[in-house]
Design a protein around this nucleic acid. Structure first.
Length: 137
RNA sequence: CCGGGCAAUCGGAUAGCUGCGCCGCGGAAUGUAAGAUCCGCCGGUGAGGAAAGUCCGGGCUUCACGGAGGCAGGGCACCAGAUAACGUCUGGCUGGAGAAAUCCAAGGGAAAGUGCCACAGAAAAUUACCGCCCUCUAUACGGGGGUAAGGUUGAAAAGGCGAGGUAAGAGCUCACCGCGGUUUUGGUAACAAAACCGGCCAGGAAAACCCUGCUCGAUGUAAGACCAAGUUAGGACGGUUUUCUUUAUGAAAACCAGCAUGAAGCGCCUCCGCUUCUUCCAGAGGUAGGUCGCGAUGAGCCGGACAGUGAUGUUCGGCCGAGAUGAAUAGCUAUCGUCAUGAUAUUUCGGUAGCAGGAAUAUUAAUGAUACAGAACCCGGCUUACAGAUUGCCCUAUUUU
RNA sequence: GCGGGCAUAGUUCAAUGGUAGAACGAGAGCUUCCCAAGCUUUUAAUGCGAGUUCGAUUCUCGUUGCCCGCU
């Protein structure tokens, strides 16, 4: 069980989006990256942020989207996330209306896949000091 | 009964599991730049009628902030009242819609002025093409004059209709209708009614410019105040005094001054007034952390009484009801409720009877739906969105009795 | 939170209140052995709903969507 803290600063979100990996499923988008956030981080914990843009809908739809993401993440992230990684969940059009069990399934699948990629990347970085050559593939 | 109109209220419920913000209480350890943080089978509390759009009006904030006049710009516009104020509301008037209840209206001024009214038409506002009538030449498809009844165009053509009258006509005259003015009566007023008079001198559009009357400073809680961390707060000129050195010069420190005049600013101008600058150069860079503002004193909410046609006001009693800041107020499951469609049964209507059909009630549980929408400083409105449910009052053309 | 602006053919832009036009594009035809170019021709639009007006792309109000600025 890893400890989860919430990302709040714009800088953190921008770093995850620009440097990290991305998984897309039908009801959500997951981004993740290794780094230590700028403010108030917990050393062994997992960072977690939520993004719902204005495209998704009006204010009460966005609120509902964020709540459902939060409710699903509360069950899943303490068990399946990696320590020292920051994740960002992005809501999509059907996040507020889709089946809740399906939303959880998709979140687990996305999380497992992105963790595999991150582990590979990490081991590759440890072996070769030049990461640009590997990531070019 | 159906239908229509107005006003008001509500806008899912219960249980379980998992969770969140704020306040209070209790406990714990750590110790910060300031602020604090964590735990609690402890307690309380937690969105709307529109929280929305940001279309108006205020409170509060900082800046400007003094007075008078004019100019410019924005807004409003029947009358009276309500209100802190309003472009809001109430009552009335006028006009329009409707069978009625009721609803709708930016509803001042077009003889203050400027401009516009395409095309068509003689003419789009001091008009005259075809006509009609008179007359002259002397018979031409001509000239001069009168007229605006008739014709054509157009959205719109200089009161309407009838009679008299005339060379032909014409408010030229008369009756009725319409219009304007004066007086009287009713009304606070808009306005209405009546009488008399007038001439029918005169279209539309002011959501064209404009005129008249009233009214208006800007800024928005990311306003603004405080705390913490942290960068800079500089340089070159002048005078006086003191000290040191001392021929002079020079150095250090302290103090003072750059007045008057002038310039800039206060939307613009004028007059007074005020403020700032008044030797010049430089006037930059960075952080965006916390507390307050911020909700129990507010044009607050609920109920009663009184005054008023009403908006509303006065008064008495009770109540305290979210306060976040990557932003809480929930997520999921089950059962129920409500509505629509369906199935079955019963009753009833019409009909001799049956089938089909309409209406009501009950059962069943099948399918679908269960809206619009999320506080961000706070109030008063307006506008727009909205599944459905409930209550009260009003109207009765038509249909039935 | 506060404040501005825009919306016209498929695209980019015009249009004193009076029949909505231009360029590029698309379709068809001519030309050519074929293509390109050229020529001819056709097509298609005022975001939506009301009001003022005889008549609104234009004026007024509401509404929808998009863009921009301030902090």
């Amino acid at each position: 069980m890893t400890e989860v803290f919430i990302l709040k600063k714009r800088k953190d979100f921008v770093k995850v989006a620009s440097q990290g990996q991305k998984m897309v499923s039908s009801s959500l988008i997951l981004q993740a990256a290794f780094h230590i956030p700028a403010v108030k981080s917990i050393p062994g914990g997992t960072g977690l942020g939520y993004t719902v843009t204005k495209k998704i809908g009006k204010a009460h739809v966005r609120n509902r989207t964020k709540r459902r993401l939060r409710a699903a993440a509360r069950e899943i992230f303490p068990r399946h996330s990696l320590p020292g990684v920051s994740y960002v969940l992005i809501g999509r059009h059907n996040t507020a209306s889709c089946n809740f069990a399906k939303l959880k399934e998709e979140m687990i699948i996305a999380l497992k896949r992105i963790n595999k990629i991150l582990k590979k990347e990490k081991s590759a970085n440890e072996k070769t000091p030049d990461p640009a050559a590997d990531s070019a593939d």
